[in-house]
Design a protein around this nucleic acid. Sequence first.
RNA 1: GCCUCGUUAGCUCAAUGGUGGAGCACUCGGCUGUUAACCGAUAGGUUGUAGGUUCGAGCCCUACACGAGGCG
Length: 373
Amino acid sequence: MKKNFSYEVLHIDKNSGARTGVLHTPHGDIYTPIYMPVGTLATVKSLTSDDLYDVGAQIILANTYHLHIRPGDELVKKAGGVHKFMNFNRPMLTDSGGFQVFSLADIRKITDDGVEFRNHLSGAKMFFTPEKAIDIENNLGADIIMAFDVCSDYGISHKDAEKAMTRTLDWLDRCYKHHKNAKQMLFPIVQGNFYEDLRLKSLEETKKYCKCGIAIGGLSVGEPKDVMLKMLDVMQPHYPEKMPRYMMGVGTPDYIFESVQRGIDMFDCVFQTRVARNGMALTSRGKVVLKQAQYKEDFSPLDPECDCYCCTHHTKAYLHHLVMCNEILGARLLSLHNIRFTLNMMQNIRDAINNDRFLEFKKEFYAKYGIKE
RNA sequence: GCCUCGUUAGCUCAAUGGUGGAGCACUCGGCUGUUAACCGAUAGGUUGUAGGUUCGAGCCCUACACGAGGCG
């Protein structure tokens, strides 16, 4: 394992829990803290691999459940794995499908053995188990694969939360017993809903399985921000030191800053690409909703401080026009920008941490972006 | 010249003689391990004009205007 994967902590900020590091994988190194663009169906929607290299994506995600349904993980294996299939030659991570079970909540049935749910395309009944998820992830061949977990809603009882957590641990054990491929690192996922004791218990038990990284799941599912931050505060002193901590499904700039401050190293989020397709951009001066009529005759760049293709070649008026006409280029340019903006932000965060000025940088960023602390 | 059909929100169209609606567009909001180029909200009307019948007319009657088609 260690031949293929290892993590080095490079620097710990003197005034916070923020830290920089580097994760070595078979497809290259990943400098943390990092944001990972999401490419569910083996495509970061509207972008080519070269686009992703150009904006500096170090690693991207793909999804077990979605690729299993279409085109099928066996086919991806025949293609030579997900890297070759989509021609992306940097590190990749596959999510296990646990979140899909959660987000397709109205049509699922969870038992100790696994989950029965309906294929959202054909309606056919499917049965997923930890072993099946690992089989699929092995076929897909990403560098980092995720354990099959049970994500639970905000607001459920302690008893139900404990059941989901215990089941996640049981499934984690099964995932590890089933996973044999040393070229793929399996990340376990901490659950425990929003109960401090369950989060801590889940973390302690999950740590026993950590070989090169640990993920925090089940957060940012509709709970208030302070509730989520409280969970991070509770867990912060107990993470394994020399492994990257991956916070799943987060986020927006403010959530990233708050999480980095609390010792998180990796993030993934569909937000950047989804809002891009819906006509919104993240910029150094805050969000820009390009549908708004105020941009009709605004011939200035989207973000004068951004070095991406979109900001160096086009105006807000043109982007407004593309968005209003529902032209696909608008979605593409804004996706390109939002990812570049976030990756630049992560680079600046790493630089700040290395200079022990994470908190100052956070303050500067918040003031300019318009985030209230 | 005659006949037929039509005229309702910016556009395309609904609406037994009984509180005039929808889709799209416009304006604005939302989006956090993608069922999402998606979802939601506000606004928008002297029902072509002028009369008549009726307790009550977008709807029935008359005239006119405008449009489409047909016949001469």
